[in-house]
Structures are given as structure tokens and as C-alpha cells.
């Protein structure tokens, strides 16, 4: 039986990405370490993403609260609004929104940057200059994305909860202290820790896929565009897959 071409391409690419990720583990822990470049990438991936992630999270918290109120009012459970919204945000919405924003912003930027460096021979120039380009460009970016995504997710959680407070007070009145006491009563470590752990995997996936697409870019400037585009598409899909697996594992461990 002949495997259809699109399936063959899918399996080939999955295999290539897996090998690329394995190379990260193989080369990433051997000296020479590129600390300077890692800090620079962490600054770009983490610090530079704070405004975008913050604004998105704030709006998400606000909108989620406004949209949830009518249903809760219908059941006479309006006072549960802070609890419900905070659990939804911390467990699922804030990490997912952060990861998807990062896939769009960071994934495309890594894909385009490395793709452009590849087609203009900058990666070859690095190798000739006594640098291992995989370590300098790829390992640092993957590591920075893996380490920064959880921090961005924490930031997103906090901002989204502020947005939710504002949302709760648009059509009702919830005092500042009551809101936060309800939020902290509702959230437990079993909500917070699994969602934080999965953001490491989100960051790793964004880094690996962005770097893979850029590092293997071909066909000139058209290839650079394709790399950036497919980095976003593939990493967004992978984030949903990781989330699905994470939810199943959390469920199996009885953390739901």
C-alpha cells in the first residue's frame, strides 16, 4: 500500500523536527556556552513580549468576566464570578493565549530571522568565523523561549485577573479585597502548577519549530516568508496538541 504524499511529508517533517530537537539536547549541554546570546534572546523573547501579552491578557480577563456574568446571573451564582473566571484563566486561558501570542510573535520572528540569515549566507559566515551556528543561534533561542514562556504566562495570569476585576465591576460591585480573597480561595496549587509546567513545553515547541523552519529555509526570500508562516501554523497546532496531552495527564493524576 502506498502512503499518500501529504502523509509521507507529514511523517518526514515530524521526524526531522524530532531529530532537530534531539540535536538541541545533544549540543546544548556541551561547552562552549553562549550565555551572552542567551540573555539577549531572553530579553527579546521575554521582556519585549510583555506589553503585547499584557494587553491581550487584560482584555481576555475583562471579556471573559463580562461574557460569563449573564449565565451565572441566570443560575443565581453571580457571586461565583471571581472564582469561576480565575480558575478558567489560571488553568487554561492565560497559558494558552500567551502561548498562541508567542507562537505568532516569537515563532514567526525566529523563523524569519534565521531564514533570512540562512539565505544570505550569514549562518555559513558564522561557521567560518569559528562559531557553531546551531549553538549560537538555535540552542539560545530554544532555551530562551522555554524559559521565558512560563514567566510570560505568570505575567499574563496576573494581568488577566486585574482585567477580570474590572469586568466584575462594570455591571456589579465587588470590592478589591473580596475579589482577591475569592480568587485565592478558588485557585490551588493543583490549578497553578500543571498550567505552569505545560508552558515550558509550549515555549520549547515554539523555539524548536521556529528555529527548525528558519534554519532549514530554502528558495530565497520566498522561503523566508514560508518559514515564518509555517513556524506560526505548526507551532500553534503543536501547542493545542501539547495542551490536549497535558489535560489528559493532569486528569490521570487526579489534579482536576
Amino acid at each position: 500500500m502506498k502512503i499518500p504524499n501529504y502523509l509521507q511529508r507529514f511523517f518526514e517533517e515530524t521526524g526531522d523536527i524530532s531529530r532537530f530537537a534531539a540535536r538541541f539536547f545533544k549540543e546544548g549541554f556541551k561547552p562552549r556556552y553562549e550565555f551572552g546570546e542567551l540573555v539577549r534572546q531572553a530579553f527579546f523573547i521575554g521582556y519585549k513580549s510583555l506589553p503585547l501579552v499584557g494587553i491581550t491578557a487584560f482584555i481576555m480577563g475583562l471579556v471573559l468576566t463580562i461574557q460569563s456574568r449573564p449565565t451565572l446571573v441566570e443560575f443565581g451564582a453571580e457571586s461565583w464570578l471571581p472564582r469561576m473566571v480565575s480558575v478558567s484563566l489560571v488553568r487554561e486561558i492565560a497559558p494558552m493565549i500567551t502561548a498562541l501570542i508567542a507562537a505568532g510573535k516569537i515563532g514567526s520572528s525566529i523563523g524569519a530571522e534565521l531564514g533570512s540569515m540562512k539565505v544570505t549566507e550569514q549562518i555559513d559566515a558564522m561557521e567560518v568565523s569559528g562559531t557553531n551556528p546551531f549553538k549560537f543561534l538555535v540552542v539560545t533561542r530554544i532555551l530562551a523561549a522555554t524559559l521565558m514562556l512560563p514567566i510570560l504566562s505568570l505575567w499574563s495570569n496576573a494581568i488577566a485577573l486585574y482585567g477580570a476585576y474590572l469586568g466584575a465591576n462594570i455591571k456589579g460591585i465587588v470590592s478589591w479585597s473580596l475579589y482577591w480573597s475569592q480568587v485565592f480561595q478558588a485557585i490551588s496549587y493543583s490549578d497553578f502548577i500543571p498550567s505552569l509546567i505545560k508552558t515550558f513545553f509550549f515555549g520549547f515547541a515554539i523555539g524548536v519549530i521556529g528555529c527548525y523552519k528558519g534554519y532549514n529555509s530554502q528558495k530565497g526570500t520566498e522561503g523566508v516568508g514560508n518559514s515564518a508562516n509555517s513556524a506560526v501554523v505548526v507551532s500553534s497546532l503543536t501547542i493545542f496538541l501539547i495542551d490536549l496531552i497535558a489535560v489528559q495527564i493532569t486528569d490521570l493524576l487526579g489534579l482536576t
Partner: peptide, 22 residues
């Protein structure tokens, strides 16, 4: 290199220092 391969994100000084430092 045919395409010069200068590092876009670095100044001329940083481009020249790069091989020295590496």
C-alpha cells in the same frame, strides 16, 4: 561571501569583532 553575509543585527564594529571574539 557572494552575498557579503554581514550580520544584519550588528553594527560594522560588531561584525568585524565577531570573528576575533569567536
Amino acid at each position: 561571501f557572494q552575498s557579503n553575509a554581514l550580520y544584519d543585527s550588528m553594527t560594522v564594529r560588531e561584525n568585524l569583532v565577531f570573528p576575533l571574539r569567536r
